[in-house]
Amino acid sequence: MSTMKYIYDMHQMMLKNNIILVYEGEFTQEITKSVLAMAERNMDSIGEESGIKRKVFNVMVECLQNIVKHGEDYVSADLQINTAIFMIGKQQNSYIITTGNPMKNELVDGLKSKLDKINGLDKDGLKALYKDIIKGGSGLTDKGGAGLGFVDMARKSGQKLEYGFEPLGNGHTFFSLKTTVPRG
């Protein structure tokens, strides 16, 4: 039954990459809550330290809500990418939180420079940027975000945000983001 082998392959791939949770599909606030609850339960079951749990939770919320707010529907004749992906991996020394979602090409440069700016800052620089944005007085964006999500992820994780862009055609790009939360 070689047509069934993808199940085995998928399982092997998850084990090899230490992935403890994958969600692919539509992202909503209800889904966000479910994914958070599953990940929390997983960390509770292995008795993860509360400080690490909070940081992972924090990064997960910002990642998931970013997709709920900014993920773009994308459908073309040969590619059916109208959904996004969220994964958590657990290594010996860290949790890896990754997301991938389609976005419009014209927003790529702006997003890239925002991420590069954040990655170029140290702890104090990130704190200053956070305070600048929050007191900016521009209120929330039309999508209800504060413009603070990536800064917060960089601050809470204490690590650089890794990212990549894959062209999808039809005016869209697939944006991948990886955040590492060190354990202990």
Binding site: G139, L140, G145, A146, L148
Partner: peptide, 12 residues
């Protein structure tokens, strides 16, 4: 216990 960044703006 926890607040997201969108809430932080409203807390301010």
């Amino acid at each position: 216990e926890y607040f997201n960044t969108a809430s932080s703006k409203l807390i301010l």
